[in-house]
């Protein structure tokens, strides 16, 4: 398939102050119409990656290319004028992402006002209808509507400038299992409707298994494995992926599942272990892992992993 409409992330490095890289060298491609899942735990850099894609985190190295331009090379002002029309984000807490002092109608008009355009009332109405939201919502404030509705309004606002790509940062966090399905079906529908490429950031593997076609597993700022989601779930190659999959709770009353319990915790990004970043916790760690950092390599098309002794 053509990757003409795609975000190409190459060697991305994102450092917050004091030179501590939260993301150190990530290569990813997000194609339009596809859903790419990014999973990892706290400290993995997945949220930082999301923020870098929408200009909320500074790019210290590497490139993010889309539609012929490199985000890393743009000035802040250029980025501010150009990026919102191509990549948007929905935040983890949808109610908090809406200004408490603005009605939802005004919040939806913000994208137009920010860019000095006339507010397109018809477009707003059409988008509200497409997302299943009643017109009466426009007069309400964020704290007056349900969490689910606020979530949809935030998505509507993000889609107002017709971006091609949507970053979803933990979109199901805080959602009960019984309503999660509804929301995910909704996401699938709007993806098809608007032809969006979605970057789905989550720590919830069960959700990611169902909603993404490709998956990238992040550990301490690096990609340890990527590939087709089903393939990874069927046969993970990296020990961390295996542990992560095994850690995800599934309905298992007979206790048949063999759980991999890792020892220790993820190191902090400012002080990564030498050699393979995962070696202190890895059940298969050998001498080579302590000294030599494994590079991402491919053994089959579409699959990459960084391990000296893949599963």
């Amino acid at each position: 398939m053509s990757h003409a409409d795609a975000i190409a992330i190459r060697g991305l490095v994102v450092s917050y102050g004091a030179g501590v890289p939260a993301v150190s060298g990530v290569d990813l491609t997000l194609g339009a119409g596809r859903t790419l899942g990014v999973v990892g735990e706290s400290g993995s850099g997945k949220s930082t990656l999301a923020r870098a894609l929408v200009g909320l985190a500074p790019i210290s190295g590497g490139s993010i290319e889309l539609f012929g331009r490199d985000l890393a090379a743009m000035s802040r002002a250029e980025r501010r004028r150009w990026l919102p029309f191509h990549v948007q984000i929905i935040f983890q807490d949808p109610v908090a992402s809406l200004s408490p002092r603005m009605t939802l109608g005004r919040a939806l008009a913000e994208p137009f006002r920010i860019h000095g355009r006339a507010v397109d009332r018809e477009a707003i109405a059409a988008l509200l209808a497409a997302l299943g939201l009643p017109e009466s919502l426009s007069a309400k404030y964020p704290h007056q509507v349900s969490g689910g509705q606020a979530r949809r309004v935030a998505i509507a606002r993000a889609l107002m400038l017709k971006p091609r790509f949507l970053i979803a940062d933990e979109p199901t966090a805080g959602l009960d299992v019984s309503v999660q399905g509804d929301f995910l079906n909704f996401m699938t529908r709007i993806q098809a409707q608007f032809g969006l490429g979605i970057l789905f950031i989550s720590h919830n593997l069960s959700v990611v298994a169902r909603t993404t076609q490709e998956l990238a597993v992040l550990y301490l700022g690096r990609i340890v494995e990527t590939g087709d989601t089903r393939a990874i779930f069927a046969h993970p190659r990296h020990p961390y992926t295996h542990a992560l999959l095994s850690a995800a709770p599934t309905i298992d009353p007979e206790r048949r599942k063999q759980r991999v319990i890792l020892r220790g915790e993820m190191a902090s990004p400012g002080n990564p272990p030498g050699g393979c970043r995962f070696h202190p916790r890895c059940p298969l760690a050998a001498e080579r892992c302590r000294t030599e950092e494994p590079q991402l390599r491919s053994e089959e098309a579409g699959r990459r992993f960084a391990c000296h002794f893949p599963l």
Partner: peptide
């Protein structure tokens, strides 16, 4: 319903998810 709503790793893709 709760049990049905729990997504499983081996579900076929594209299956709409269950909600209450």
């Amino acid at each position: 319903a709760l049990i049905a709503c729990e997504p499983r790793h081996d579900d076929p893709p594209g299956l709409p998810m269950v909600s209450v």
